[in-house]
Amino acid sequence: MKLSAGDKVMKLIIYILLTFLAFITFYPFWNSLVLSFNVGSDTSLGGVTFWPRKFTLENYQIVFKEKHIYQAYIITILRTGLGTVLSMFFTALFAYAMSKKGIIFKKFYMLLAVFTMFFNGGLIPYFILVYNIGLYDTFTFLLIHGMISVYNMIIFRTFFMELPDGLEESARIDGCSNLGVFFRIVLPVSGPVLATLSLFTAVFLWNDWFTPAVFINSQNLIPLQTLLVQIINAGATASLLTNLNSYAQSMVQNTVTVKALQMATMMVATLPILMIYPFLQKYFVKGVLVGSLKE
Rank of each mutant, 00 (worst) to 15 (best):
P52R: 04
Y109E: 04
T19L: 12
L271S: 03
F279A: 00
I216E: 05
L221E: 08
S198M: 14
C176E: 10
F89A: 10
V229A: 10
E169A: 09
L17N: 00
T84A: 06
K100Y: 10
F160A: 00
N245D: 12
F141N: 10
T226D: 00
I133P: 07
V186C: 01
A248I: 09
A72S: 15
Y131P: 02
K107L: 10
K100M: 13
M266P: 01
M117R: 01
Q262F: 03
F204M: 10
T211C: 00
S149T: 10
D7C: 02
L280R: 00
F182K: 11
I104H: 14
V48S: 08
Y96E: 08
F55S: 06
F127M: 12
Q253R: 09
Q225A: 01
N38I: 02
M275Q: 03
G121Q: 13
T76F: 04
K67A: 13
F105N: 13
A248P: 05
W30K: 06
L289I: 10
D7T: 03
L289A: 06
L224H: 07
F115Y: 14
G102T: 08
F23I: 13
Y73L: 14
L86I: 15
G81N: 07
R172S: 13
V34A: 03
P28G: 09
L112M: 15
I104P: 15
F200A: 09
L35R: 01
L244W: 11
K54P: 02
F23R: 08
E169L: 08
T91M: 07
N152E: 11
L135T: 06
E66W: 05
V256W: 02
Y73K: 01
T19A: 11
L21A: 13
V9N: 00
F204D: 13
G166S: 11
Y131T: 15
Y109K: 01
L293N: 00
F23K: 06
M263K: 01
G46N: 05
P188E: 05
S44I: 14
S44D: 12
L205H: 09
L143D: 07
G287I: 04
L241F: 02
E58I: 14
A264S: 13
V189E: 10
L112Y: 12
L82E: 06
W206Y: 01
A234G: 09
L280Y: 15
L78G: 05
V203C: 05
H145P: 01
V85F: 15
Q61S: 07
K11N: 14
S87L: 08
F127S: 10
F26K: 01
L93A: 13
N31C: 11
G6H: 05
Y283G: 04
I77S: 09
I133W: 07
Y131G: 06
T140H: 04
